[in-house]
């Protein structure tokens, strides 16, 4: 290994290390705040080393544990199903669009792109999904609207396909008599594992963090996902605190407001952090296979 390379590696470690620190420290602050006595936060502000600890926020969440575990279930289910479906649909649209020889490809790409800029807005979308397709208060409502596929991912994947799938490979496969579906499945997908892993990650995060669908299309509390449940608890607290003069006395006394937000974030993010190394393995592996074959 040359000296120059070692220099690169070291500077990479230093720069990335600093950046990683900037990413971790706030999260640590988040966690310590969530177990700080809320009195201390009010009087001393947020701190890495709180003078007194309290698990009141987690206690309150534990009281709602039945609701929260149910919500975890919904979130995991929609994330898995949604991400899988989404990857399939996205890649099946992106691959043909990446074929420069396909007639109409440019028009179709434009149609996909157009959706990134113009949208009808919340109310019309709500009307379509509730009046044309009655998905209100079904599990589909947590999967289909807005999230299932987006033009950005399609165009991104298309750019990758154009870039990383060599045309000669496709042509020779075609000459060998392979059908388009076989080519898509056996060649394109295998050669594009890095982008599949990337889009898969984006989609999974989108599903995990989504609260909007539940807010708009779900009124049945049993179908709420994690973010819906946590947001609802939070919005109660916020509503009460900004309407202090409205006679909500006895209710507000029971809510731990200051540290609560942090605790909510922790239990929202923690599962991702726990799951991430497993995912990472797949992600990294996918990347290397892609790299080797390409």
């Amino acid at each position: 290994m040359t000296k120059e390379y070692r220099g690169w590696r070291w500077s990479a470690h230093i720069i990335l290390g600093l950046f990683a620190l900037a990413c971790i420290l706030p999260f640590v602050l988040l966690f310590t705040s969530s177990v700080t006595d809320s009195k201390v936060i009010v009087t001393e502000g947020y701190t890495f080393f709180p003078s007194s600890l309290s698990f009141a926020a987690y206690d309150y969440l534990w009281q709602n544990s039945k609701m929260i575990f149910n919500a975890y279930g919904i979130t995991i289910l929609t994330t898995v199903v949604g991400t899988t479906a989404s990857l399939l649909m996205t890649s099946m649209l992106a691959y043909p669009l990446s074929r420069k020889d396909m007639p109409g490809g440019m028009v179709l790409a434009f149609i996909v792109f157009f959706t990134l800029l113009f949208n009808g807005g919340l109310v019309p979308t709500y009307m379509v999904y509730t009046q044309l397709f009655d998905i209100k208060n079904t599990l589909l409502a947590q999967i289909v609207p807005w999230l299932l596929m987006n033009g950005f991912n399609v165009l991104l994947m298309r750019a990758f396909f154009m870039n990383s799938v060599p045309k000669p490979v496709l042509e020779s496969a075609s000459i060998d008599g392979a059908g388009e579906f076989t080519i898509y499945y056996k060649i394109v997908l295998q050669l594009s594992l890095p982008i599949m892993a990337t889009i898969g990650l984006f989609q999974a995060l989108a599903y995990w963090n989504d609260w909007n669908n539940g807010l708009v299309f779900v009124t049945d509390a049993g179908l709420f996902n994690l973010q819906n449940v946590l947001n609802r608890i939070m919005s109660d607290i916020e509503f009460l605190s900004s309407n202090a003069s409205m006679g909500s006395g006895s209710i507000i006394a029971q809510l731990p407001s200051e540290t609560f937000r942090m605790a909510i974030a922790v239990i929202g993010i923690l599962p991702i952090l726990i799951a991430y190394p497993f995912f990472q393995k797949f992600f990294v592996k996918g990347l290397t296979i892609g790299a080797v074959k390409g």
Binding site: S38, K39, I41, V42, T43, L240, S241, A244, S245, I252, A253, S257, E258
Partner: peptide, 20 residues
């Protein structure tokens, strides 16, 4: 962003104005 009640409860504040 800290609620009035929290400010009072924690002993940081003495009073506030409000609609009564």
């Amino acid at each position: 962003k800290t609620t009035t009640f929290e400010l009072i409860k924690s002993g940081k504040a003495f009073s506030y104005m409000a609609l009564q």
